[in-house]
Simulated assay, not measured.
Amino acid sequence: MPELILHHYPLSPFAEKIRLVLGAKKLAWKSVIIPSVMPKPDLVALTGGYRKTPVLQIGADIYCDTALICDVLEHLQPEPALYPLHAKGLARTLAHWADNTLFWTAMAYSTQPKGFAQLFEKAGPEAARAFGEDRKAMSAGMPRIRPADAAAGYRSYLRRISDMLGEHPFLLGQTPSIADFSMYHPLWFTRVRTPAVADIFNATPLVLEWMDRVAALGHGTMEDLSASGAIAVAAAATPAALSGDAFQDDHGIALGSRVVITSESFGPEPTEGELLAATRMHYTLRRTDKRAGTVHVHFPRIGYALKAAAAA
């Protein structure tokens, strides 16, 4: 098993998703705590621009977005499986819905004034303002859900999740799948980070019992690592050889071209590099940083836009 380095911070819901996957698979990992807001110079030295949380590092290979990170962890440790054979497509589809529709509904509800105030009651108003401005910049152009509308939607989604739990302990059966981890983390944020508004769970006790089962999976075996230590690991390593997956050209951009990859919605910061792979599932860019050396930065296809650097 290669050394797994997770760049994250405790407050991040998506980081909690990956921490629990690491726990379910009983994996050991190194923890690098990153800032929750920009600037993030140590992280950007590895990614080239991408700043969302979390990021998985394996030597000089940098994996962005939890959808891709979960695929990488599944490849490294296939058991217990995130994608059950009887419901692979369903599990992935539910996970995508949860990471997008459910997530933004839960965030809009949880960060209503009472929840937002609790979130930063110890950090103070300056930290709250900085966080708010940072997320405003990350979500420029995205539609915003008002808390009152989010509350109605959230209640409906919780009832639907509850309906999935009447016959078995996890959403798709006897063991947790990617659907569980993706639906759990937005709810975790409400229940654990903004408990002042967590009474929304009172009508769905089965959801609370399921959340307790997911939380009990733990976070695996964690060891702290400094950001400079992680950069040194990348600088001393050589990116892993790429698999022989077929090149899927949907853009008319040849391998070896200078390209820019950006998120289609939240977090628009671009990453530029040389396109090394464009398979049906992911992109790989090669880039060089004066601190991190030559790294391969990997993105999932879904949710990300690829453009030639000259046209970006």
Rank of each mutant, 00 (worst) to 15 (best):
T175K: 04
P176E: 05
P176R: 01
S177Y: 10
I178P: 02
I178N: 01
A179N: 00
A179R: 00
F181K: 00
F181Q: 00
F181I: 14
S182Q: 03
M183D: 12
M183L: 13
Y184Q: 09
H185W: 03
H185T: 01
L187C: 13
W188F: 13
W188M: 12
F189I: 05
F189W: 13
F189Y: 12
T190C: 10
R191I: 14
R191N: 12
R191G: 10
V192H: 15
R193T: 02
R193L: 14
R193W: 13
T194H: 03
T194S: 05
T194M: 09
P195F: 07
P195C: 02
P195V: 11
A196T: 10
V197D: 12
V197T: 03
A198N: 04
A198C: 05
D199A: 07
D199E: 13
D199I: 01
I200Q: 05
I200E: 11
I200L: 04
F201E: 04
F201S: 00
F201R: 01
N202W: 14
A203W: 12
A203E: 15
A203D: 15
A203C: 07
T204V: 15
P205Q: 06
L206R: 10
V207T: 08
L208K: 13
E209I: 00
W210G: 05
W210S: 14
W210N: 10
W210V: 01
M211K: 11
M211W: 05
M211T: 07
M211P: 05
D212P: 04
D212F: 00
D212I: 02
D212Y: 07
D212W: 04
R213T: 08
R213P: 07
V214K: 11
V214D: 14
V214H: 01
A215I: 04
A215M: 06
A216T: 07
A216K: 04
L217I: 05
G218F: 08
G218M: 04
G218R: 02
G220H: 05
T221A: 11
E223K: 11
E223R: 10
E223F: 15
D224Y: 13
D224K: 12
L225P: 07
S226N: 02
A227C: 01
A227H: 06
S228V: 08
S228H: 02
S228K: 15
G229F: 04
G229R: 01
G229L: 07
A230H: 00
A230G: 05
I231V: 15
I231L: 08
I231K: 01
A232L: 04
A232F: 00
A234Y: 07
A234D: 02
A235H: 15
A236R: 04
A236C: 10
A236N: 07
A236D: 09
A236T: 13
